[in-house]
């Protein structure tokens, strides 16, 4: 009898977890659908969109730039070491370029922005929820989705590709600096190898990924902040959840998008 009861308890636990997961997925899907809908329906708060573009894009430039610079530099060293084992040191420039624009630029850039921006959005919206500012928006005849969520989603989708494009250039430059100064490549040859082997599809696939990551980052920040629990603990939890979920979803979306680009 006791075994049966424990088994029931075990099954109930699994059932509760599954229902919780489905409920959370449903809530997130509805939130995302509502957010996207308000991106396309007037009125638009362009001043808010510009403000968010500055916060998400411009102010993330230093952290993303530094990440790209060091990633490009390390990649050049690693590929040189690996390539020298089968006399293929010459591929350093092209592999650095392809690695940065297809993969490392968007993914590492996305993860850095997720840490910075998702947390900031969740904390801001969570505080607004706790201090009734979101309720105040409603009483002032302003839809919080239009004023808070849509501008952030638009800004994320538009600025991440630009940010990643800049990160790509800085990352390739990091590889170039190491290649020329540390590994003694000829500067002209390095640049020629970078340009010649890089295709438009490489660059575009990275930028498409960046747009998707921009959406994920801002969506997670908005979702967790908007639904934040009460008090400082609620805002703290929302911030943590936003960063963790954005990071995990970026990595999962990266695989799915890479498969998609790989097949086409």
């Amino acid at each position: 009898m006791a075994v049966l009861s424990a088994f029931h308890g075990f099954l109930a636990g699994i059932g509760a977890s599954v229902i919780g997961l489905l409920r959370a997925t449903g809530a997130l899907t509805l939130f995302a659908a509502q957010g996207i809908m308000h991106c396309f329906l007037p009125p638009w708060y362009w001043r808010e969109v510009l403000r968010q573009m500055m916060r998400i894009g411009y102010f993330s430039l230093p952290v993303v730039g530094l990440t790209a610079l060091f990633t490009g530099a390390v990649l050049a060293l690693q590929i040189y070491i690996g390539g020298s084992r089968f006399n293929a040191e010459g591929v350093v420039a092209s592999i650095v370029a392809i690695g940065i624009v297809r993969e490392l630029g968007p993914v590492l850039g996305g993860l850095m922005v997720a840490g910075r921006v998702s947390a900031a959005i969740a904390a801001e919206l969570g505080t607004m929820r706790v201090t009734e500012q979101i309720d105040a928006l409603t009483t002032l005849s302003t839809n919080p989705f239009k004023y808070l969520v849509a501008p952030r989603l638009i800004a994320g989708v538009l600025t991440l590709p630009v940010l990643v494009a800049v990160a790509d250039i800085i990352g390739i430059m990091g590889g170039f600096l190491v290649g020329v100064n540390r590994l003694n490549f000829n500067a002209g040859t390095y640049i020629a190898n970078t340009v010649n082997f890089l295709e438009a599809g490489d660059i575009l696939s990275g930028l498409y990924k960046a747009a998707a990551f921009g959406f994920i980052i801002t969506l997670m920040g908005c979702y967790h902040g908007y639904n934040s629990g009460r008090g400082a603990q609620g805002v703290g939890t929302a911030t943590t959840n936003a960063v963790v979920s954005a990071s995990v979803l970026i990595l999962a979306a990266n695989y799915i998008l890479t498969e998609l680009f790989f097949s086409t």
């Binding site: 505080t127 607004m128 201090t131 009734e132 309720d135 105040a136 409603t138 009483t139 002032l140």
Partner: peptide, 19 residues
Amino acid sequence: RDALLDKFGMLFQGGALFD
């Protein structure tokens, strides 16, 4: 609902001013 909300003004307990 928008037309309805236009009739209202509200003073919140903590002010709820936009920072």
